[in-house]
């Protein structure tokens, strides 16, 4: 090795050795990713086109039968409706609350570090814990069994706010999104705060000199500048909401009224042994996340390259 290295141009050899070692170091994780991510995606896709029902694998090819059946499945309709409502409430709630918190903190409040940590804290909690806590808070019991937030409303004389939370017909899933907003709006705030800090003071000054009101400064200058932040926040929050599972299980248990694709996937696979249908739901979920994430990554990477 050393003798050949002596003959070759040293700079070049060192570089390729480095490259080679780099590849070696990356290899284990590359293989693991290929196998455990892409390999299993491929396997799931295969199962989603099989007739596997019951404990033992059955790989008889049935084409798109499972997907067609899903499209006609009234329970899957509910899943899609619930996901749409959940995503809407969750993403919008996080963006609005996150942005407002960021603007307030950006005003140079005293003890900013304390508040920043405070608002970020919920993110440190797992969705399971959030779900359990909010299950108690959002107790839908009425009459003299009021408890949780409803009891608080009652004591404060805000009776009109008392509601059935996640037991509300049709819109119960919106209540399930509230804990998720609580948990993730601090994170959205952090994103926005970083964005706001990057907006140069000179731009604000210039706008003010031009006679813009504070509202107009935000509306015309700052919010447009924060568009990349908003976009990444939407992507991040959106894919979380497509995958939400633990929060719903902890908060609502297994009930069709608050069903989402991931919970349907779990129950149909492990309670009913419909491995084919579970895999089909998994593939649909993967597709919907991919539709959201891939164009964004592609766009951003291309922009980076152009720069």
């Amino acid at each position: 090795m050393t003798t050949t290295a002596g003959k070759a141009p040293i700079r070049r050899k060192a570089f390729s050795m480095e490259k080679w070692w780099g590849l070696v170091w990356v290899m284990p994780s590359l293989i693991a990713v290929m196998l455990f991510v892409y390999g299993f995606i491929g396997w799931t896709a295969r199962v989603s086109m099989s007739a596997w029902k019951g404990l033992l694998p059955n790989y008889d090819f049935v084409g798109d039968d499972n997907f067609v059946a899903l499209s006609k499945d009234p329970r899957f309709d509910i899943d899609i409706k619930n996901t749409a409502i959940f995503t809407f409430v969750f993403v919008l709630g996080c963006l609005i609350i996150g942005f407002l918190l960021a603007v307030l903190l950006d005003k140079g409040i005293r003890g900013e570090g304390f508040y920043r940590t405070l608002f970020l804290f919920p993110m440190a909690i797992s969705f399971i814990v959030t779900g359990v806590v909010w299950r108690w808070l959002m107790n839908p019991a009425q009459g003299d069994r009021l408890s949780g937030l409803n009891l608080l409303f009652d004591k404060l004389g805000l009776d009109f706010l008392i509601n059935s939370w996640h037991a509300t017909p049709e819109w119960g899933i919106a209540a399930v999104a509230l804990p998720a907003v609580w948990q993730m709006s601090g994170y959205t705030m952090a994103l926005y705060l970083a964005g706001l800090r990057a907006v140069p003071e000179t731009l604000r000054e210039a706008a003010r000199v031009d006679g813009a009101s504070e509202y107009q400064v935000y509306r015309m200058v700052i919010i447009p500048l924060l568009r990349p932040i908003t976009l990444s926040a939407i992507i991040i929050l959106g894919h979380i909401s497509l995958k939400v599972f633990d929060l719903i299980i902890a908060l609502a248990g297994k009930q069709v009224a608050l069903d989402v694709p991931s919970t349907y996937m779990w129950t149909t696979t492990f309670d009913g042994y419909f491995f084919n249908r579970g895999a089909a739901i998994g593939i649909v979920l993967l597709m919907s996340v991919a539709v959201l994430v891939i164009p964004y990554l592609w766009y951003t990477l291309r922009q980076e390259r152009d720069l």
Partner: peptide, 10 residues
């Protein structure tokens, strides 16, 4: 910078 940051965060 902003884009880099947001990409990194994402």
């Amino acid at each position: 910078m902003l884009k880099l940051m947001s990409l990194f965060a994402a």
